[in-house]
């Protein structure tokens, strides 16, 4: 897949802090790309640089295979950080301004308002809107002109459970239409449900990136146990001699769990232990959630 967004060695320094450090990542066309990280990890800064509102200290951003331009940004619909509107204008008037800037057809305004269920409130000033309504209006603005790419930074902020479910369905529908979606979120469960790819940021640095399945597989835990009459230490000694067995943790009753190095399967492990004369009474794989993986990546860094 070609890259829609390509970020190379991006660094953003402020007076006393480095918000993003030497970050490189690539967003494949047609993917739903989750950008994960705790508060202050550099997600919004990275997107802000990609969208042209922040200046990078060093590094390069390419959209659609070329240097970023205003024209390239018009092919991207984005909701970055907070909804930004003129409070004294109505929802519709604000969308008209967005449509002018994006050079989108005014006809797309009605469809966008319908999508976010604000058609009935379109003539009310935005100053009277709740945060959730402003968030939905910002989503409508991002959808104007049917952009090829959507950048959604915490799109479910301020939404009620129904709104969150609606946004999830919307993202899945847009992804099914072939749009590329870049989603920065704290809601790891959401990301796991909708994203095909993810990158994990911590303290401005990239900790992991790739297809979600690959990131999760990297920390699948393998649980092992020998027969009850076997020497419990024998398993640990044997595992110490298996180079692709990582993060071995003893468990009660002579059992233990471990992670496998990339490219190795539980069958490889079983063969390696059998070659050392050990027969397993139990071997199972625990598929971890993105949340577990995320927390482990953050703790390891």
């Amino acid at each position: 897949m070609s890259a829609i967004l390509d970020i190379q060695r991006l660094t953003k320094r402020y007076a006393r802090t480095t918000a993003v450090q030497d970050l490189s990542l690539s967003v494949p066309a047609g993917s739903v790309f989750g950008l994960l990280g705790p508060n202050g990890s550099g997600k919004t800064t990275t997107l802000g640089i990609a969208l042209g509102v922040l200046r990078a200290s060093s590094g390069a951003v390419r959209w659609f295979g070329a240097a970023p331009t205003a024209e390239a940004r018009r092919r991207v619909g984005a909701l970055l950080e907070t909804p930004n509107f003129f409070p004294y204008l109505t929802a519709r008037q604000n969308l008209q301004i967005s449509a002018d800037t994006k050079r989108a057809s005014p006809a797309t305004i009605d469809a966008a308002l319908e999508t976010v269920e604000l058609a009935g409130r379109q003539h009310e000033p935005v100053r009277g809107f709740s945060l959730g309504m402003k968030q939905r209006l910002a989503l409508a603005a991002a959808l104007l002109g049917q952009p090829e790419v959507l950048v959604l930074d915490e799109p479910t902020n301020g939404l009620d459970p129904q709104g969150i479910a609606d946004v999830r369905r919307l993202i899945q529908r847009l992804a099914a239409e072939g749009r590329t979606i870049i989603l920065a979120s704290h809601l790891l469960d959401e990301v796991q449900k909708v994203c095909t790819h993810a990158a994990v940021l911590h303290q401005g640095q990239l900790r992991a990136a790739g297809p979600v399945g690959q990131i999760l597989a990297a920390t699948d835990r393998v649980h092992l146990r020998l027969a009850p009459d076997a020497d419990p230490q024998a398993l640990l000694r044997a595992l110490a001699a298996v180079p692709f067995a990582q993060d071995v943790q003893p468990a009660p009753g002579g059992a233990c769990s471990l992670a496998l190095a990339p490219g190795h399967s539980p069958a490889d492990l079983n063969r390696a232990l059998f070659a050392q004369g050990l027969a397993l009474a139990h071997l199972s794989t625990e598929q971890r959630s993105l949340e577990n993986q995320f927390l482990q990546l953050i703790q390891n860094s």
């Binding site: 969208l51 042209g52 509102v53 205003a70 024209e71 940004r73 018009r74 991207v76 984005a78 970055l80 907070t82 930004n84 509107f85 003129f86 409070p87 301004i97 967005s98 800037t101 994006k102 050079r103 603005a141």
Partner: peptide, 21 residues
């Protein structure tokens, strides 16, 4: 200054306006 306060200048750049514009 209202546009800085409302962050609408920022939004217009995101939406595809150049800073010169």
């Amino acid at each position: 200054t209202d546009e800085f306060q409302y962050r609408t200048l920022r939004q217009q750049v995101i939406d595809g306006a150049s800073r010169e514009q």
